[in-house]
Nucleic acid binder design. Sequence first.
DNA 1: GAACAACCTGGAGTGCACTCCAGGTCAACC
DNA 2: GGTTGACCTGGAGTGCACTCCAGGTTGTTC
Lengths: 122, 122
Amino acid sequence: MTTTTLTPAEMADRTGVSLDTLRYYESEGLLNDVARADNGHRRYSEDDVLWVEVLRCLRDTGMTIDQLRHYCSLGAVGPSTKPQRLEILQQHRALVEQQIAERRRALDLIDHKISYYSGEDQ
Amino acid sequence: MTTTTLTPAEMADRTGVSLDTLRYYESEGLLNDVARADNGHRRYSEDDVLWVEVLRCLRDTGMTIDQLRHYCSLGAVGPSTKPQRLEILQQHRALVEQQIAERRRALDLIDHKISYYSGEDQ
DNA sequence: GAACAACCTGGAGTGCACTCCAGGTCAACC
DNA sequence: GGTTGACCTGGAGTGCACTCCAGGTTGTTC
């Protein structure tokens, strides 16, 4: 059995994250222990793909690079940091729920304006 | 009857938008025809308050300053631009719904990781 | 063996949305 | 009448998350 690995270009394709951003994440400590081919080129694993998807999910919902770095560093320490990581996720979960609530209110306001524009006068 | 007006400080207080940002919005054409006192100081109206709240709602859900400027400039033209403004709001509405959907997926992923961290091993 | 593609590194540059600052005006208070 | 506070203007600075670039290596293709 051979474990499949992805070239940088394939990784970018799979995750939708650019080559530069993948390298940037690595340099920021968000993506560690990326394998290398003999020529020094990166070789990403399926686990790396999953992890980058998690990173994107958290980034896209407003977690900063700094917070992600902290979260990753906890993971690197070992199982002893499980409670802290759980705490971070729970806090972020609450944030995402706030974002949803905020956007629901936004929809109300937008709908209000839409019906105003759709109306007869003004 | 006297129309109530707000000083810049009161306006910042009411809207939660900083003095600098209020001036910035005005300079970018997002907030037009702000009244002035005799000494040249700004005097915001209740309509200004409502409008800034709309601006913040749209900004907070990802509309850029550039897009807002365009939307405002249409408003300045007159009622003839109603269809374009309606179109912009409908497109933005769709965007906000996408954001909600994306965040729902994020919640699923976060919950999955939370249950993993809450579980027995690892 | 020249050219090309894919990658490497370190560092500089970009775009956005503010945010801060310097130097000035004006009215009110001590 | 000097100081204080709120405000004014134009312009510079900031922070974040990328994104781009120069110069170099390696491996394959004509």
